[in-house]
Structures are given as C-alpha cells and as structure tokens.
C-alpha cells in the first residue's frame, strides 16, 4: 500500500500533526477535567471544544484575509491567529 499519491510536503505534515496533537490534548484535558458550557463574549454558550473550533475556523479566515489583502509575510497572520485563538479559548 503506497501513499505516494498524497504528495506530502513538510509544512503540510507539520500542519496536520499539530491539528492532531491539539485534538488529542483537548480530548485528554476533557476526559480528566470535564468542563461545562458557559457564556463568554461570543453570542452562544460554548464548551472548550466549540471554542477551539471557532478559534481554528477564525484562524483560517485570518490567514486567507492576510494573503488576499496584504503582501506581507504570513508569520504576522500566524501571530494574529494564535492571539485570536487564545482570546477565544479564554474569554469566548
């Protein structure tokens, strides 16, 4: 069984591994210390899992907006996305 056709590159591998690690970490966290739904600045009640999803989706849009609207390095967008993710996770 060969998976050459998947055309892996180093950056995308890192990307997917980090996603898997984040999901695994979230699962372990929630198994050990389950947390309840609560209401932050977002208009809906959320669990940490919901906030992670919103954070990641938002990050994707931040990156796209950065690529589409500016010509600057993507690392700034990456920084902004991390900031957004942290803000949503803590106060969302």
């Amino acid at each position: 069984m060969s998976l050459d056709w998947m055309a892996w590159t180093f950056p995308t591998a890192v990307f997917f591994i980090s996603i898997v690690v984040i999901l695994a970490a979230m699962t372990i966290w929630q198994v050990l210390w389950p947390s309840m739904e609560r209401r932050g600045f977002l208009p809906i009640t959320t669990t940490p899992g919901d906030r992670l999803f919103i954070g990641l989706l938002g990050s994707a849009y931040i990156h796209l907006a950065w690529i589409g609207l500016t010509g600057l390095t993507l690392w700034i967008a990456f920084g902004l996305a991390i900031l957004w993710l942290v803000v949503v996770m803590i106060w969302g």
């Binding site: 699962t27 929630q30 198994v31 389950p34 669990t47 899992g49 919901d50 999803f53």
Partner: peptide
Amino acid sequence: FLGDKHMFF
C-alpha cells in the same frame, strides 16, 4: 458523551 456535538457536526 465526550465530543458528541462536535462529532455530529
């Protein structure tokens, strides 16, 4: 169960 809503979505 853990992650039920996320699984569904």
